[in-house]
Every structure is written in structure tokens, then in C-alpha cells.
Design a protein around this nucleic acid. Structure first.
Length: 423
RNA sequence: AGAGAGGUGGCCGAGUGGUCGAAGGCGCACGCUUGGAAAGCGUGUAUACAUCAAAAGUGUAUCGAGGGUUCGAAUCCCUUCCUCUCUGCCA
């Protein structure tokens, strides 16, 4: 959520910047400014009214003490009018604030200056590419065929137990998955991230805190009995650790990594693009989260990008990095780099990581602040990235590392898997 | 799940209808003292919103959350969440 004060003071700049997202924010912003004016004047009026009745109440107290009950009773009548007035003002204030809040929720984050204009994925800007795309043998298969051939992932079994998009990993498939999780967590820990384990269900306040609600209502699994949501990413529970907190400036940088399953309803299409592991309702992901000083957040984002690069380098997988364009940028992000893995057998790029700086957008909702040197409170910057999302990395390994003899496990993973080939 | 107790500032803890944003202590910050440190002494030490160009100041709200009673609520009533103890159930 953008800060009201910023909207008030930089209206033009905000409207201009949001055009990059293909959005004309003028009407929204205008209404917000109007409501904000109304809110402030109601606040002032209410405050004066309450101040007056507080004063009279004190007077009444004094009068009763000194035995002047009659005079006190006269004042009581006076206060009735004030009470009615303040009740009305409270109502206006509340409804104004509510309306204002819901409008504020509708404004996405302001794209960073470096974000390219554009509406679709085509307009994303490739900023880096590395790794060699392997030449596969003639009988190379897509991962869903490989999964069947080697009996390492069973999609039909998942359908039986739960439904489409809930695969069952078996044997070396399950072991490879576990190996990847352990490997990613180890790499992240080495890079200074503190490993934590968090709940996989969150309450409504947390879902609002990181911006899944109200923007992505319907994309999360909701348990109405307890009013809890299954997490779509570890970002939600991890970032919400800092909801309603004031951290000390000296604590920066705050860095966490967490492995969790992720649950997404993903009401969407069927077909080749979502086949196999390409899109799932439940998948595993290792996430990194940072809370940073505003001066350091872009440096930190670069650091995250380098860190993820290193992992992919070690795995010897071909990948590229995209700077997302305005139209493709997530609602809450100011700048996002997507990592895409090239899947030779599918002949397409698969998104495997997304590293974003949210600047103060999340922090404002979360009320995550820090005390700066002069003791003033400021909003912190939050960042997160996948390091990494499992299914498509798995798909990439299966497809890119397949040989006629079997699937050759990348060297760095062998200590984790305990085997070097799936055959 | 049943019975009981309780939720007060960074922490501990007082407060059962008026002058309480809240005693006292600890912690923390600054100053004095000291060769330096400790002790000691002094001062300060919540958040949000409004007002103001800004700071200061002032006002309002906040004692888990929401609602109610009252001229007035940390204090009384209702709802709800959470914690603890005992019993039950259970990986």
C-alpha cells in the first residue's frame, strides 16, 4: 500500500509512473485525495468535540466532589448534545477511512525507474543469459514422459488422492526433490540467510499484510471453519514475522530462508503449458526474504540476483534473467527480476525464480518500521525471492540432463541424492 | 474438548469508576562523578492520527481486540482472541 502522504505530495509523479503498468490512476488518486481531506476534517472536528466533552466531564467530577450536584446536572445536559455530535462524526470518520482504505488497496506499487514500459511478457527485458543449452539425443522426452518412464513422479496417483496438480513423487524422484530442498537451504545458509520453519496456514491479517488479500482473493485456498489460508508462498508467513514491529536500524540486514510447500488454486488453463510440473496446486519452494534499510535495498536485490545466479551456475543449467516490464510486474513489487530456465525438451523458458524489491509497499501495510539514527521512525524495505522453486528446476534437470543411459544428476547434488543417475 | 486463573509500556509489576499514558522497579540513552570502569546521583525514555511550512507545542485515541453501561472506564457488563494450571484426547 502506498503511503497517503506520498500520494498527497507526489500525485503527478505517481500517476505518471503507474502508466508503465498500463494504468490510468488519475480517478483513483483524485478520489483518494478527496477522501483524505474529508477524513482529516472529520478527525479534527471529532477531536475538538471530544476535547470539549472531556473537559466538561472533568468539571462535573469536580462539582460532584464539592457537593454542587445541581450545577453538575446542568452540565450533563450539555454533554448529551456533544455526545450525539461525536457519535455522528465517528461514523463519518469510520466510513471515510474504510472507503479510503479500500481505494488504497487498489493502487499497485510504483514501478522502479528502470522498469521497462510494456503490457505483456514480450516486453520483458532480458538482462542476462548464461549456460549452454544441451543438444539432446533423438529420443529426448519432456519431463512428464520421463517421470513415467523412470517411475519417479506419478500424476495420476495424485489425481486419485487429491486432484489434478497434486503429484506424487516416488523413489529417486522423491529423493531428488528432498536433495534439492536441502541443497538450496544449505546454499542460502552459506550466504548468510537464517533458516526458519514457519506455519503453512496463515490468518487473514497476515494475508493482508503481504498483499495477497484483497488482491488475490480466490487464488488462495481458504479454510472457512477456522478462517485460515494455505500459504501460496513462504513470503507470507516469513514477512509477517515483522508485522507491527519497529526494528532497530542496527539489525539490518535481516535475512531469512525458509522451505515450505506452496498452495495455489491457479484457476487456469489446461494444455501443454501447464502440463506435468509446469503448473501445480501444491509445490515446494525455498524462499529468501530480506528486510533492509531503504538506502541499501537495491544493492540487496542485486545481491539476491547474484546469489541465485551462483546456484544455477553450480547446477550447470541454462538460464536467463528478465527485468519485468510494467505490465508483467506483480501488484506489490517495484522491481522484479525473473529467472527462467531453458527446457530443451519442451523448447521453452520456464520461470523458476522471481526476486523483487517491494520498497515500502509491503512495509506500509505491515507497519514494519525502524528507528533511524535521529530516532525517527521510517518504513523499512522488504524483498524476497525464490531460491528456488522446485518443480520447474526438477523439470529442467530431468529434461536437460537426460541421456540415453538415463538422467545424469548434476555433480553438486550427488552428495545430497546419494546417486548420480536415474535409470 | 471440559473446569479454573489471567492478559497493563522494551521487560517486571501496581492500579477495581474521576486529576491515569498510567506508581515503583529493571533495562536503555544522555549528563555529572571517576585515571578508567562499576556503584551513586540527575534527566529523559510508547504508538497512531489531527493541527503546524517544519520543529516545538497542543488536541484526540490506545491498558489483548470489538461492542455496551456511565457526564466520566485500565477499573463494571457482553462478545471474541490469546496465555497459563488441572483433567481428557492425541503425533
Amino acid at each position: 500500500m502506498l503511503q497517503l502522504q506520498v500520494i498527497r505530495e507526489h500525485k503527478e509523479a505517481i500517476v505518471n509512473a503507474l502508466q508503465k503498468r498500463g494504468m490510468d490512476a488519475t480517478p483513483l488518486v483524485d478520489e483518494i485525495i478527496l477522501l483524505d481531506k474529508k477524513r482529516r476534517s472529520s478527525q479534527s472536528q471529532l477531536d475538538t468535540t471530544l476535547a470539549e466533552s472531556n473537559m466538561i466531564s472533568k468539571e462535573i467530577g469536580m462539582l460532584f466532589k464539592t457537593g454542587k450536584a445541581q450545577e453538575a446536572n446542568t452540565l450533563k445536559n450539555k454533554i448529551t448534545t456533544l455526545k450525539e455530535a461525536s457519535k455522528k462524526l465517528t461514523e463519518t470518520l469510520n466510513s471515510t477511512e474504510e472507503a479510503l482504505q479500500s481505494l488504497l488497496y487498489q493502487i499497485p506499487n510504483i514501478p522502479h525507474a528502470s522498469v521497462p514500459k510494456g503490457n505483456t511478457e514480450e516486453d520483458n527485458e532480458e538482462v542476462f543469459r548464461e549456460g549452454t543449452i544441451p543438444k539432446l539425443h533423438d529420443k529426448a522426452l519432456p519431463h512428464w514422459e520421463l517421470a513415467k518412464k523412470y517411475d519417479i513422479i506419478d500424476f495420476e496417483l495424485g489425481v486419485k488422492i487429491t486432484g489434478a496438480g497434486f503429484p506424487v513423487y516416488k523413489g529417486k524422484g522423491a529423493r531428488l526433490q528432498r536433495a534439492l530442498i536441502a541443497y538450496f537451504l544449505d546454499k542460502n545458509t552459506e550466504a548468510g540467510y537464517t533458516e526458519i520453519q514457519v506455519p503453512h496456514l496463515v490468518n487473514e491479517a497476515s494475508a493482508y499484510g503481504t498483499g495477497q488479500l484483497p488482491d488475490k482473493e480466490g487464488q488462495m485456498y481458504h479454510m472457512p471453519v477456522d478462517d485460515l489460508y494455505l500459504i501460496p508462498t513462504a513470503e507470507v508467513p516469513v514477512t509477517n514475522i515483522f508485522r507491527d514491529t519497529i526494528v532497530n536500524e542496527t539489525e539490518f540486514p535481516i535475512t531469512y530462508t525458509a522451505y515450505t510447500p506452496c498452495f495455489r488454486r491457479e484457476a487456469g488453463s489446461y494444455g501443454a503449458h501447464v502440463r506435468g510440473l509446469n503448473r501445480l496446486h501444491q509445490f515446494d519452494k525455498v524462499e529468501i526474504v530480506r528486510v533492509e534499510h531503504p538506502n541499501k535495498s537495491y544493492e540487496a536485490l542485486d545481491g539476491m540476483v547474484d546469489h541465485i545466479k551462483n546456484i544455477l551456475r553450480e547446477l550447470k543449467l541454462p538460464y536467463r534473467i528478465l527485468r519485468l516490464c510494467g505490465g508483467d510486474l506483480g501488484f506489490t513489487a517495484a522491481l522484479t527480476f525473473d529467472f527462467e530456465l531453458f527446457s530443451t525438451a519442451q523448447d521453452r523458458w520456464l520461470e523458476i525464480s522471481s526476486a523483487s524489491n517491494f520498497e515500502t509497499y509491503q512495509a506500509n501495510r505491515l507497519k514494519l518500521r525502524f528507528k533511524d539514527e535521529s530516532g525517527k521512525r521510517q518504513l523499512a524495505h522488504t524483498l524476497n525471492g525464490s531460491s528456488l522453486a522446485l518443480p520447474r528446476v526438477l523439470a529442467g534437470i530431468l529434461e536437460n540432463c537426460q541421456t540415453e543411459a538415463g538422467i545424469v544428476i548434476p555433480d553438486v547434488l550427488v552428495p545430497y541424492t546419494g546417486f548420480s543417475i536415474i535409470d
